[in-house]
Design a binder for these strands. Sequence first.
DNA 1: CGATAGGTTGAGTCGCATCAACCGGGGTGG
DNA 2: CCACCCCGGTTGATGCGACTCAACCTATCG
Lengths: 249, 249
Amino acid sequence: MIASPFIRKLEHFALLSTEDRRRIEALIGRATFLAPHEHFVRPGDDPRSVHILLDGWACRYKTLPDGRRQIVSLFLPGDMCDPYVFLLDAVDYAIGALTPCTVAKVPARSIRELTADRPHIAEALWWQTLVELDLQREKIVSLGRRNAKERIAHLFCEVLARLAAVGWSNGTDCDWPLTQADLADITGLSTVHVNRSLQEMRNDGLIELHNRHLVVRDHGGLRETAMFDTIHLHGLAAETPRTPTTEPG
Amino acid sequence: MIASPFIRKLEHFALLSTEDRRRIEALIGRATFLAPHEHFVRPGDDPRSVHILLDGWACRYKTLPDGRRQIVSLFLPGDMCDPYVFLLDAVDYAIGALTPCTVAKVPARSIRELTADRPHIAEALWWQTLVELDLQREKIVSLGRRNAKERIAHLFCEVLARLAAVGWSNGTDCDWPLTQADLADITGLSTVHVNRSLQEMRNDGLIELHNRHLVVRDHGGLRETAMFDTIHLHGLAAETPRTPTTEPG
DNA sequence: CGATAGGTTGAGTCGCATCAACCGGGGTGG
DNA sequence: CCACCCCGGTTGATGCGACTCAACCTATCG
């Protein structure tokens, strides 16, 4: 049960048999609980294990020598952080909790055994890795060529699609536990500017965002300002509702 | 022979036997030649094959609906573009030649057979994929939190390290076929600003860049302004010379 | 009830974009 | 052989988007 968001996500990528599912459940032994700002990976760590985020939001980030911080990945419930890191020697980023998190720590050996036995699962994990490559590319485009509102809009679209894929959102609203400072570190902006951009987006009638809850008021408008394209999610967005969008103009 | 830069790169990741090398050579049938601005992958393509760049520079890029363009990956001689794309359904980016290129097109099936027979090679390809993930993350940090000079400096460091890994540079100078417009599309800047930033970097005594040739004048200074860290290259930089840097100040 | 975290607002500044013109070199065609 | 063009690089003027600094407001919590 507890592994369900993770399994649900994998099933977007591969057909899993009952046995597959059983083996995945078995991966998850004791779960650990983390408070916001606690870490489960630190730069320099030798990756002898892999983490599955069962509940809560987390992020991977890098910090420059002078303190500037950039979040490079956002982890949502059901995400496995770096399925294959153990192929590498060391890691140059940190992964920390943004909200209270439930995390399962899986030894690299278990992953190796599982993927050796169960090619379907191996393929699903690789698929997931390829999707992450594509998510990152889209982030590069955002940071390189989109302005503040576009970046934020794009993030909203991405997160809603990803949450919908594991049944945590209907595609139009969701819990939004991130602070404006988190948002700034994701979008490469300052908190002040995030604040003002959000206000504009509210005034434009695109979204509502109060009390840690996000509601999309104008799907068409949001996607349009984000220039959001689901192709790069590669099936992750399969369950995203095809919303009858209200085209402006 | 013709596969050598590719093999050389793989050997950073895994020990290859003579048989391994033979099999890789055999992958490469006829090579195609491309002029700058010609494409070997287009958005929407169903990836039934994989490309190995034997000579020249190429890039993966995305174009926004309104024409803004962002280069998301730079391919150098010896790079395999997307070793495992064929796991996916379609592709949402373009790959095009920046200089005249020699490219080998390898059918997905050959890759599948090769990796099934030769686990060493499979692992080397996956390693390469993980390194690319890390390169992309570093790019996200650049675009999100580094300013113009820092971004350009970081790119120079990265490219020199990658070229050195396949024997195309000694780590302090190399051919630099990119135009300032290309540089702008990589760094998310305008060409005008790239131009002015380069001038400052020349004045700062960091680099020389004339006639499509790049020379690093001050290694320490360049790395410092780039805040460049080789960890994220994971062994790709193994052959990078440990240069006795001239620390300023 | 003070302390703290998160959000909001205003003023001033700067990095970078945009627009536009110009320069130099290499290739091309008459 | 020269006139021309085009591409890549350079320069200047101007404007805007986003940053910084700093204050203040509100809700939550021990």
